[in-house]
Design a protein around this nucleic acid. Structure first.
Length: 941
RNA sequence: GGGCGGAUAGCUCAGAUGGGAGAGCGCAGCCCUUACAAGGCUGAGGUCACAGGUUCGAAACCUGUUCCGCCCACCA
């Protein structure tokens, strides 16, 4: 083997190396699966981060774990594809761009829909790639040539296809009902997008006088007095004796003097408040249900801005909170406010902007979810999809069982526009012209013939000469009522299929962002086309994600995958924890406790950072991130680097690339390969069951403590002294290279740097085969043998350390062996003992007479004596032995009790009993020796 | 109101199917030994939240309690 001169940098510099190597990998297309179809495939689709996103700890953890898996599988010989992409993130992105416009003094309505969308795309092109760059910085080995975006042509095609199919089957439908409305974002939200937060509020007790006898009244309790303007009844429980006589009577709604009935409904809780509930069908979900049952009218008193409508009489135009204030004051004046109590209750907030949501009655699109949910539950029950950790399936089932129809339309501009059109000229069954039912409001008035027009029906506006385009562009809200028949189409519908009219308006709404993400596992692989990728990689193998989007995303992917691919989208769902700060608090900008992954990478390097995340990723628990741990793993890298530097001094002696246990003779070398074998086995098995932390620690433990602390020290004895240098060097390199490969999925950069640029391997480490144990083998006998040597060294060191014997002192050590095996092995290992325990003279024999006044250490098979009477304080050694005596005696008692227990002997497995017996015998011997020595020391002292 | 998770060394956490408790950091002592002081060696430190139970044997399994954290839910 030709060995050229290699210059090795004194220290490892992550920042230089990482960018260089990432470029190298990308240029060589190592991230792409190859075309070899005989290899099994392994696929992960990335949970697409928002285009607006910047890499946070959650992304970093998520990406690290996926990269560990994909690199591991790739090295195991799989055709591995990690498919990356980003999500258009409807509301979030629209908000970002709108905020930007605001700084320029613009808003989206002034720009119009098309212009606004152009701006968003521009923004996406300019800034949307940021998170991709950051993922690369982390070392993610995604196949970037397959990068997807949820608004790409292909994915949009998939979205339309799915919508149309569901529409045709009646699984998407339009309905007029109460939905969650964000008055700031001006859009409907699904139930999931509402965050409920426990809030300290007030409970207002308001008197509603009886019409026939105004001195009598019913008191209702409410947290939202402003909604009383929309009351159309007061409900009491039919069982409630207090109100028995009121049922059926009429009350006068204060402030606006509407006559409303007292009704009875069993949904009313007699215990709460006064037992009488005001019913506001237009602004409360419960009340809407009561209204359905009792056929109550809906009075809408709040508009889409959260301001009071015409129906609110004197309160018209007031903001909802201002109206509340005024109403309370007015009620006080009328002496109709009985009392105000403090009251805790859950208030819903918009998950994007935190504004309090408002139940609002509008026409929206929904997905009928039960028929989709049932099969999705079944595949999990049948074990076709596995959740890891398993405990999450309960959450999944619970949600899926009580699932309600999914509101998918959003009153936004950025997103997949609903592929549905409405004809303005058709007559409906009710005989009204549809066009009249399409009502338009403008954000800024348009001028026609010098007249300012703010709003009108579609037909009116067209008659006034407003163009279709202008309506689409400038309209703030286009209200299309439920009576209008939707015409769905893959392509733009230009003429009405019923009447041939060209007066068609496209539904102004876009789809919930999560609608397109639900298709992610197959839309990214090319569906609806039957692509090669789809055949090869669907179903994907594992989904790695956080628990916060199990409902938003995971559940919906399962439903859609089953519906449109007739197959599960992934086999395993690995749910990882949330990354919190070191105090266990959720990281958030407002708390100022956010740790930026990129700062960590800059300070410590990507490898150290990734390793930290993996080492923290124990199942089922949140991660309290601590920077000190990252620092610790940076030192680990330093350790690796230094070990490498030592080894490279002997590189020229290397003769073999590959070894198995049969190829080596010397016990310490066989010991090393056996330990390596264990580390390999543990790493693989841990990764198989997603125990990332166990895998990380197995590698760390082996590399630092077994390889560096023990083996390198053994090797010095041979390499700086006598012995089979060649074999030792071969073992050093073989083990080191294997552990580099083991480590590569966790620390891709430093391993590659050493592999390629120090060891001068011809090919990247990322496509080298991952170590498996069968090629190396294990030698139990060598492990046993080395245990004698290691015990001896530890025993001497221990005496040294505890008795504070300075290393400069010459140390004579006597080892009395009790067995032939011990004697043979220790004589062989004397060279190691001498050097590693810094012994100047070592005598090993069966018939060693202990010198009076020796420090003693009793090991399995031998005893160590160190004559110390001239060296140290005998009192100290006595103390040391007494301490040990206490320990052994405790142990003996414990084992004795156990072994005297007949039930234990009878019931415990034989090997457990056997092991305890052996331990017991050993302890007895040790105990005797210690006692003996103590006696001698006593005599001396 | 329902459900889930946690409580183990001073700190942060491991302990997969039950066989006398581990790591990293921190702490104490000794050491610049020719890879590494970003290091080596040696130590100290734990009634595994509490109370019962199952078992020959429990940190682990079961029941209850306390304290934290999270998710879901239309109590106005």
């Amino acid at each position: 083997m030709h060995k050229e001169e290699i210059s090795i940098p004194e220290t490892y510099k992550p920042d230089e190396v990482e960018t260089k190597l990432y470029k190298f990998w990308e240029e060589n297309e190592y991230f792409k699966p190859d075309e070899d179809l005989s290899k099994p495939s392994f696929c992960i689709v990335i949970p697409p981060p928002n285009v607006t996103g910047t890499l946070h700890m959650g992304h970093a953890l998520n990406a690290t774990l996926q990269d560990v898996l994909i690199r591991w599988k790739r090295m195991l010989g799989f055709n591995a594809l990690w498919l990356p992409g980003t999500d258009h993130a409807g509301i979030a992105t629209q908000n970002v761009v709108e905020r930007q416009l605001l700084q320029e003094g613009l808003d989206r309505y002034t720009l119009g829909r098309d212009e606004f969308l152009k701006k968003v795309w521009q923004w996406k092109e300019a800034c949307g790639g940021r998170i991709i760059k950051q993922l690369k910085r982390l070392g993610s080995s995604c196949d970037w040539s397959r990068l997807r975006f949820t608004m790409d042509g292909g994915l949009s095609k998939a979205v339309k296809e799915v919508f149309l199919k569901l529409f045709e089957e009646g699984l998407v439908y339009r309905d007029l009902r109460l939905i969650n409305w964000c008055p700031r974002c001006h859009t409907a939200l699904s139930d999931l997008e509402v965050e409920h937060e426990e809030t300290e509020g007030k409970l207002y007790y308001i008197k509603y006088p009886l019409k026939e006898a105004p001195s009598q009244y019913i008191t209702v309790a409410t947290t939202r007095p402003e909604t009383m303007l929309g009351d159309t009844a007061v409900a009491v429980n039919p069982e409630d004796k207090r109100y028995k006589d009121f049922i059926g009577k009429t009350l006068i709604l204060p402030l606006i003097n509407r006559e409303i009935p007292v009704i009875s409904d069993s949904a009313v809780d007699m215990e709460f408040g006064t037992g009488a509930v005001k019913v506001t069908p237009s602004h409360d979900f419960n009340d809407a249900e009561i209204a359905q049952r009792h056929n109550l009218p809906y009075v809408c008193i709040m508009d889409e801005d959260g301001k009071m409508t015409d129906e609110a009489g004197p309160y018209k135009g007031l903001d909802r909170y201002k109206a509340r204030e005024k109403i309370i004051n007015d009620l006080k004046e009328l002496e109709l406010l009985e009392k105000i109590e403090k009251h805790k209750h859950a208030v819903g907030h918009c998950y994007r902007c935190k504004t309090t949501i408002e139940p609002f009655q509008t026409v929206q699109w929904f997905v009928k979810i039960k028929p989709l949910a049932e099969p999705a539950v079944k595949v999990v029950e049948e074990g076709k999809i596995r959740f890891i950790p398993e405990s999450w399936v309960n959450n999944y089932y619970a949600w899926m069982r009580d699932i309600r129809d999914w509101c998918i339309s959003r009153q936004l501009w950025w997103g997949h526009r609903i592929p549905v059109w409405y004809c303005a000229d058709c007559k409906t069954e009710k005989g009204i012209k549809q066009g009249d039912l399409i009502e338009i409001r403008f954000y800024k008035p348009i001028k026609i013939n010098g007249k300012e027009i703010w709003s009108g029906t579609y037909t009116e506006l067209r008659q006034l000469g407003v163009s279709k385009e202008e309506i689409e562009q400038k309209a703030k809200i286009i209200k299309i009522t439920i009576e209008v028949k939707p015409i769905a189409g893959k392509e733009d519908v230009k003429t009405c299929p019923y009447c041939g009219s060209s007066e068609l308006v496209q539904d102004p709404d876009v789809l919930d962002t999560w609608f397109s993400s639900a298709l992610w596992p197959f839309s990214t692989l090319g569906w609806p086309d039957e692509t090669e990728d789809l055949k090869r990689f669907y179903p994907t193998d594992v989904l790695v994600t956080g628990f916060d989007i199990i409902f938003f995303w995971v559940a919906r992917m399962i439903m859609m995958g089953l519906k449109f691919m007739n197959d599960i989208p992934f086999k395993d769902v690995y749910i990882h924890a949330l990354v919190r700060d070191s105090k266990g608090q959720k990281m958030s900008k407002s708390k100022g406790n956010v740790i930026d992954p990129l700062v960590m990478i800059e300070k410590y390097g990507s490898d150290a950072f990734r390793f930290t995340l993996a080492a923290f990723a124990a199942q089922g628990r949140d991660i309290k991130f601590s920077e000190e741990r990252v620092e610790g793993y940076r030192r680990f890298i330093n350790k690796i680097w230094n070990a490498m530097k030592y080894m490279m001094g002997f590189y020229h002696l290397r003769t073999k690339e590959s070894l198995s246990i049969e190829d080596v003779k010397s016990p310490e070398n066989r010991w090393l390969l056996s330990k390596l074998s264990d580390a390999i086995a543990e790493t693989n098995s841990a990764l198989h069951s997603y125990r990332f932390n166990d895998a990380a620690s197995a590698i760390y433990q082996f590399l630092w403590h077994e390889f560096c602390d023990w083996f390198i020290e053994f090797s010095k004895v041979v390499l700086y002294g006598d012995g089979d240098k060649e074999e030792t060097v071969n073992c050093l390199f073989f083990a080191f290279e294997n552990v580099l490969k083991l480590l590569h999925p966790f620390m891709p950069f430093v391993t590659e740097e050493i592999w390629l640029n120090i060891l001068k391997k011809p090919q990247s480490i990322m496509i080298s085969p991952y170590p498996t144990t069968e090629l190396i083998g294990k030698d139990e006998e060598a492990l046993q043998k080395m245990e004698y040597v290691i015990d001896a060294i530890s025993g001497i060191r221990s005496i040294r350390g505890e008795l504070n014997i300075p290393p400069s002192l010459n140390l004579d050590v006597y080892i009395k062996t009790l067995t032939n095996e011990a004697e043979e092995v220790l004589r062989w290992g004397a060279k190691f003992i001498l050097k590693l325990a810094r012994v100047s003279q070592l005598n090993i024999s069966k018939d060693i007479e202990r010198e009076r006044g020796s420090a003693i250490s009793v090991k399995r098979g031998f005893e160590i004596y160190i004559p110390v009477k001239d060296l140290i304080d005998i009192e100290q050694e006595k103390k040391r032995l007494q301490k040990e005596l206490v320990k052994t005696e405790q142990d003996i008692n414990f084992l004795n009790k156990k072994l005297m227990n007949e039930d234990f002997i009878k019931n415990a497995p034989k090997d457990v009993v056997q092991k305890d017996k052996e331990k017991y015998e050993e302890l007895l011997v040790r105990n005797d020796k210690i006692k003996e020595n103590l006696k001698i020391l006593e005599e001396l002292g």
